[in-house]
Design a protein around this nucleic acid. Sequence first.
DNA 1: AATGAATGAGAGTTCATTCAT
DNA 2: TATGAATGAACTCTCATTCAT
Lengths: 201, 201, 201, 201
Amino acid sequence: MNSIQDNKYSQQRQAAIGAAASVFAAKGFHGASTKAIAEKLGIKQGSLYYYFKSKEEALGEVCLFGIQNYVQRMDAIANSSQPFEAKLVAVVTSHLTSYRERNEALKVYNDERLYLPKEKRTKLKELGSGYRQSLERIFEDALAAAILKPSVDCHFAAQAVIGLCNAWGDLIVRDPNIDIYEIIEKCTDLLINGFGYSEHK
Amino acid sequence: MNSIQDNKYSQQRQAAIGAAASVFAAKGFHGASTKAIAEKLGIKQGSLYYYFKSKEEALGEVCLFGIQNYVQRMDAIANSSQPFEAKLVAVVTSHLTSYRERNEALKVYNDERLYLPKEKRTKLKELGSGYRQSLERIFEDALAAAILKPSVDCHFAAQAVIGLCNAWGDLIVRDPNIDIYEIIEKCTDLLINGFGYSEHK
Amino acid sequence: MNSIQDNKYSQQRQAAIGAAASVFAAKGFHGASTKAIAEKLGIKQGSLYYYFKSKEEALGEVCLFGIQNYVQRMDAIANSSQPFEAKLVAVVTSHLTSYRERNEALKVYNDERLYLPKEKRTKLKELGSGYRQSLERIFEDALAAAILKPSVDCHFAAQAVIGLCNAWGDLIVRDPNIDIYEIIEKCTDLLINGFGYSEHK
Amino acid sequence: MNSIQDNKYSQQRQAAIGAAASVFAAKGFHGASTKAIAEKLGIKQGSLYYYFKSKEEALGEVCLFGIQNYVQRMDAIANSSQPFEAKLVAVVTSHLTSYRERNEALKVYNDERLYLPKEKRTKLKELGSGYRQSLERIFEDALAAAILKPSVDCHFAAQAVIGLCNAWGDLIVRDPNIDIYEIIEKCTDLLINGFGYSEHK
DNA sequence: AATGAATGAGAGTTCATTCAT
DNA sequence: TATGAATGAACTCTCATTCAT
């Protein structure tokens, strides 16, 4: 069997992307040294360049990996036939789980993509926008179905969900004792009902 | 009396902190060069060391400035006698306004403080915790006054507010066309009522 | 007195250009290391970058220095009112003397300028062409005055003079025992009369 | 009989020498990478080491090839029974033709041999000297036959011929539009008669 | 006969930092 | 109070070379 994944080169390259993600996430792009990345991979510094043309290319690959993985899950959720509330839970779960699974690539995409050259940044932005748009669509559908109050601004809502999840994601990455499912529940409750008192709920 | 001299020195030092904040915010701690900071101040690279012992000290001062300024406003709000909703609006307004006013120091505190040596980081953490605790107290008071639904976790709530504001803060910094007052309103509405439909509201 | 030359920075920079010229001439651009250049100057490697933005810039400055100096002398000769033969002697003398005076910059211009980026190369080419054109003009004037035989191709002649001088220049640089004045005489004799026998001369 | 194998190996090796010559000529020894040489040959970088023990050995072989080829032709000319003028034409033609035929090895011998270790350089020098000496002998014979004027210094003459041809060779390599036969004619005319006017010619 | 993968030494370059002036 | 000049360590990146396969 000679499948694509079998390819030893791309396997090692994928491992290199993982190592880079981990170091970039911990130290930032400029604070990360190629030596540290190579050491995490178990090879010597110069050998990294067998897999990447430059440190910048490594950043690009990490970001791409981080967001791709991510957008795919979102698409699956958006295209599913679950009711709104289930979708929202799925989105938050997907987002936070991804942080807990040490998907450092996502953090890197969030925090470091601005150090990429314009060209690459634009490509990634499209993917990222795709994510936000899928999320917006989920809100729009719910709005049309009168599940949300009419005043809801779906663009604002999508950004708020993403921002909230990223903020908790950061905390989750730093503190492994946080109960992720508790956070998921509280986040969705906040998003749907707010903190305010209302006798119906 | 050398208070005048002292005054001039500390004025320039404050300006240096501002310049550092600006460059750190734009490029991150490791991506920022002392040369760039000096240029922004209008002096030469080596002269920076008249105001800071090291680049790291500069980072410390920036973070301190960012959070101090911030905590003070929060304390004022927490200690005021406004009703809960007004306090929440005030908090969000204070937070987002601070981004719009290019208070880059706050962004630096959020994103770069982890590059400080442990000792300093701990000191800052206390301040930051003070901020969060004041915010938590606001929620606790409201909870006691039955303005919030009993299930609200005040710690979660405070973190959520901070996270949401920081996320929108980043967007605001990058896009000067965003109407900040619209965001403030939508954020507080989200926090109190959520997006979900409920006939009472 | 505060003349331009007094400026310590430009004095050191000029010295740096000289050191670079020497190393480039001996090892070629790619074979020369910035460390070697710095050592010749008596400073540490990194300090070179106080005077040059890059190794390439250093090459550019060396080439410029080499050819400028050179073109000036040629212009002086071309614009003088000496007879043709005297001019030719002056040109050859100027060219070969410059090699003997260890004007390594000229050798660098000849051999290494092709490693400059296009933009800079073009600028230098103009200067170099100016040199060749001045030389051509000397031949053209002599042709018009019937001092040269009518069949002479002035472009060919100028290139031949330059080529011959560069070739002997290389030998002169390598062997300090060569009698430069003997070479000058023989070169001019070759250029005017050739090696062939003719009873008139 | 393993002569066929041997043959294939040495054929490929010869091709490798050609590829190396081409890259060395274009970028210089230090500027040339083994990867570029391998690519020109159509093999991978590491495989070059099947044919050469080191980059330096490749340089040695290129230089040897360049000068051998060359000396052979010169010997043939020197030992022929043509009259002086025909020999001179033959020499110049051989030299310039060799550049036009992209015999980059010769250029490499001229420009890069100094990067060889002393031992090898000395061996090559003997060959090169053989070339010059053959040429000198041609001049000496002509001098003895009173075809050249008595003042001619045969050593100088040989060097001048070589230098002139190398200089034009460089121009020829760079500009494929140059009419090589015109140059040959003008060079020999210059060498025999000079540029100066004389009623006999 | 050739390759894929890795290495280690060294390159050019940047930069926080120092210090005499 | 500020600068010019230099430093040395670290960094990214290149490349000749090796070797198991």
